[in-house]
Design a binder for these strands. Structure first.
Lengths: 341, 341
DNA sequence: GTGAAAGCGCTAACAG
DNA sequence: CTGTTAGCGCTTTCAC
């Protein structure tokens, strides 16, 4: 099947290119019978406008980029990223945008992909997942003046719009719940402490303790990296400190932690109570079901897109800082039900 | 920061557009000192070629599309899709292509997205995940003459290139393993039986039984849909038939099945032995570790890209049918270790 | 080795 | 309401 252009359609319909263009773009100023005629030819020829030509003249590609720095590994190991991607994709669909996905595995990838991201004409805007590695990227991108939204508050960069939850408050809520149940030695498995999300959840943990006049014992704090395996290892390192409860900064790490507890011959929540973070599907697939902080991941993705479109439409000023709410979902792993009875 | 064009760079470097273009595209015919001069200006201005303009004239966008029909739900619920996506993204990176992701949630999405997929100028080629819903899409796409590779053998469409594993042989291997361990009543939880992957794995199951002169008992076959919950429910429906072992057509469903077994107060593998399919991370996170068929998911993604690039380069003929190998990974859920000792 | 010129397919004033 | 015209920014012959 040959590829038809506006010109071809115009000729076959006996009108000018402009008229066909108007029909395609649903401009009102076209006589009905002419529109019908053009539409018929379009249908017959299977004409689709050429995206490159349209982008070139309109300076709009209707493509948004999603950049996940150094997350090639975790992209499929933690349901968080797929879930986020899904929310972003859905919002793109609804707004007739196409989604371009950039997964950086290495510094090398980053260098290689950067020109394509910053190149004009391909992307109308970019969503960047906040991560330690991404910050310098953001700086470069922001200078290029391209519409930009971060998924997660950046650490060092100011004046960049972002969408996030309040991780301090959320972690505080989770730990307060454990303390409220009467547990004395409450530990935490943190995310990477060179990311805002890792630091903020740790801060929430600290705050909940100090607020009650309790001391923060560094032996009860172990850093991990959001993978299941790291959660498993972190709990093993935590065990000598004899925690009675642990706030784990992600469900995926909680899975690993619970695996380690099981292997140590201990029970959740009778020996060690657990609270996770995310509330993604694995939380209810595990035994016992996980008490966890629900994060509106899908909604975060949708909101990131909405914010980016707003920026594309109305300019980068003012900086948007959007915080969505979290919620504590109490199930069995924290031992609340047993203690209640 | 203003946006510079070839023209701007040319003027500042005191050369013509053509020369700048040659420098950018690494053409040999440029005098060294001129090249240096141009490169300096490019660096100073932060010039990046405009993707739309380049695509328009070169008829190449260097963007590949990945279409996952009706998989918005499973995209994040089953690590299979993220893993596949990751393989595809990595291969795109290596070949300097950009990846556009199309997640269809509904028939409506499909209609809405179709024009963007088939529109010239945006995509150089498309990878479509095989699924019941995707077949008619494929037909339309194939007629548009756009380079196309299917991930998974299509059911009804001929003359379409695809990359897949041999699901019949793989399932046969898994079930034969169970039969070889001496289990008599071996059941199966299948994938959707309106997909080739679902049907093929069931066929492999049947073949392993009949090959040994055993009868296929329909009560030992339950259809599910690759989700964890469906695996859970399927096992509950299977239980009255008293299976001694079950071949489950995906690890994710196996997780659900094992959850149901646990809830029924039974043990894996002592009461019910399990073999899964995929060998993705959850397989070793669960207790007991899952015996499963390893599928080279990442490799499938990489190969799909390589095949698509080959088609873009050398034309659609001949139809490529690429089959990658599977491997049985024996762990504890099948009871092999206990029976050996 | 370099520049001039044509044109990729489309949109959007501007006339009429 | 419709056609003419002028580019969008780039690559690519074709001269020189």
């Amino acid at each position: 099947m040959p590829v038809f252009t506006l010109e071809d359609v115009a000729r076959k319909a006996g009108v000018s290119r402009s008229t066909v263009s108007r029909v395609v773009n649903k401009h009102p100023n076209v006589r009905d019978d002419v529109r019908e005629r053009v539409l018929a030819v379009i249908k017959k020829t299977g004409y689709h406008p050429n995206a490159a030509a349209r982008s070139l003249v309109s300076q709009r590609s209707e493509v948004l980029g999603l950049v996940l720095p150094r997350s090639v590994q975790s992209f499929f190991a933690d349901p968080y990223f797929p879930r986020l991607t899904q929310g972003i994709a859905q919002a793109c669909n609804q707004n007739n945008y196409t989604l371009a996905l950039f997964l950086f595995g290495t510094k090398e990838d980053e260098e290689r992909l950067y020109p394509r991201i910053s190149r004009r004409g391909l992307l109308d805007g970019i969503i960047v997942q906040s991560a330690q590695m991404g910050e310098e990227l953001i700086l470069r991108l922001a200078q290029e003046n391209i519409p930009l939204v971060m998924q997660g508050r950046p650490a060092h960069v100011a004046n960049v719009s972002y969408v996030d939850v309040d991780n301090v408050t959320a972690a505080h809520m989770a730990v307060s719940h454990l303390l409220g149940l009467g547990y004395q030695r409450v530990g935490t498995i943190t995310g990477p402490l060179d990311t805002t999300v890792g630091l903020d959840r740790l801060e929430g943990y600290r705050k909940a303790l100090t607020e009650r006049g309790m001391e923060v014992d560094d032996n009860l704090i172990v850093e991990a990296d959001f993978t299941e395996v790291s959660g498993y290892q972190a709990l093993q390192r935590l065990l000598p400190a004899r925690p009675r409860a642990v706030f784990v900064a992600s469900d995926t790490m909680a899975l690993g932690a619970m695996r380690a507890i099981r292997e140590a011959g201990l029970k959740v929540p009778n020996d060690v109570a657990i609270v996770g973070f995310d509330d993604l599907p694995p939380a209810i697939m595990i035994e016992p079901p996980l008490t966890t902080v629900r994060q509106p991941v899908h909604q975060l993705g949708m909101t990131a897109v909405a914010t980016l479109l707003d920026i594309i439409e109305n300019g980068v000023e003012p900086t948007r800082r959007i915080i969505l709410n979290t919620e504590l979902i109490v199930r069995d792993s924290c031992g609340a039900s047993q203690r209640a009875s």
